[in-house]
């Protein structure tokens, strides 16, 4: 029961927080860059929290808050729209391949490093 409450509480903050960050950040950056920021911040929080906390607080922060703040489906949709836009811009195959490749590498490596960094910070007393 406490697990359900912890996840619910974290997600009730995490999902609307993502909507707010998206709303403001997409005024100055593309949806894909905005989601990279969101996923990296959330991964940093998850990495730190899994190392720093235990019990229900860890569940609240890692599964609830960071889990609902970050999104894979939203990123996959934004990436698909970006890929369509590149196709419609009639860019050559090699230019599209490089741009999409860079987008995928950034989208996976930066949150990964953020999660690792968060965990390292939590271990540094």
């Amino acid at each position: 029961m406490s697990t359900i409450l912890a996840i619910s509480f974290g997600a009730f903050i995490g999902a609307p927080l993502r909507a707010l960050v998206e709303q403001y950040a997409t005024r100055v950056r593309s949806p894909l860059t905005t989601l990279l920021l969101i996923n990296s911040l959330g991964s940093l929080l998850a990495g730190f929290s899994i190392g720093a906390f235990s019990g229900d607080l860890r569940i609240l922060l890692v599964i609830g808050l960071a889990g609902a703040f970050t999104t894979f489906s939203g990123w996959a949709l934004a990436f698909t729209i970006y890929a369509d836009a590149l196709t419609q811009a009639r860019l050559t195959y090699s230019v599209r391949f490089v741009r999409l490749g860079v987008a995928v590498i950034f989208a996976t490596v930066v949150p990964g490093l953020a999660a690792w960094g968060g965990w390292l910070i939590s271990q540094h007393n």
Binding site: A15, T70, W75
Partner: peptide, 12 residues
């Protein structure tokens, strides 16, 4: 869907 899917768990 935003809350169901996750990137932080994937990264961790």
């Amino acid at each position: 869907l935003g809350g169901f899917t996750t990137f932080s768990a994937l990264a961790l």
